[in-house]
Amino acid sequence: MSVSPAISQGSAGQPAPRKRRRLSRKLAPWLFLAPGMFMFLIYVLIPIGRSVWISFYQWDGLSPAHWIGLENYAELLDDDAFYTSLKNNVIWLVLYMLAIPLGLFIALFLNQTVRGIRIYKSLFFFPFVISQVVVGLIFSWFYAPGFGLFYKITEWFGGQGVAVLADENLVTYGIIAAGLWPQIAYCMILYLTGLNSVAPDQIEAARLDGAKGIKMLWYVVLPQLRPATFIALVVTIIGALRSFDLVSIMTSGGPYGSSRVLSYYMYEQALSEYGYRMGYGAAIAVVLFAIMMIFISGFIWKMWRDERGL
């Protein structure tokens, strides 16, 4: 710590209170941080480490845990349900990305100033506000065999209704469609906000140069929407990999486990009706965590760079 000249010269009566203030200014951030950091440490950071640790044990949550090294991970490699979940996670991740262009499309559609447009924007945003449990129930009803709206529509067109949630090959896509509904709404609102601040003079200048339509969008508008796109990308990737609620509500992972994702499979293993397998569950969680860390590090790296650039 360097001593500032003001102190070292020490004008007679001043040093004591000033020194105290300097001390308090060094201490203050830690006092402000303490309660929040304490809670975050106890409930978020330490549990991450503990989960990794638990993944090396065989543990039912009650009796003493039993160290088995890498056996949980070895078991994962031979577990078909694990591969199904992993595959579904990849499908989720890829298809969820559709939320970004579709959200942009709706935002462009709504970015007008006609009467009542504000209420339209709010109503389009609606699906994001309601809980995923409710979204799941709504879509279960939508797909319900026999009378669901979607079932009726497919019956109308194809002669035979499609029971999406009972079909092993379709079920994941059906759940993803339900998940896309609120996610598109979220991306839409991000882009609407972004479009609000697109520089009008640049648009006009480009228009004078003869740019329009897709070209204008690609070369002039999208570059200005980059911050919105970044956030849309972050929330969509995280949302896709966190998918749990819809799977749990709509199918409980079925039929025959075909709609499981890692987050659901982990829950199933750790707290299943057939006995708790905390260690095995933790190992699944560690794999999911590792996958997500790839993306999280990417986001943090970019945010870190932006922060340094400021």
Partner: peptide
């Protein structure tokens, strides 16, 4: 510290589940 808060916010809930339930 700032980025620890940010990163913690993105982790999957399942990595916290067993220890938080236990705690």
């Amino acid at each position: 510290i700032f980025f620890l808060f940010v990163a913690g916010n993105f982790v999957p809930f399942q990595i916290l589940m067993v220890p938080v339930r236990d705690l």
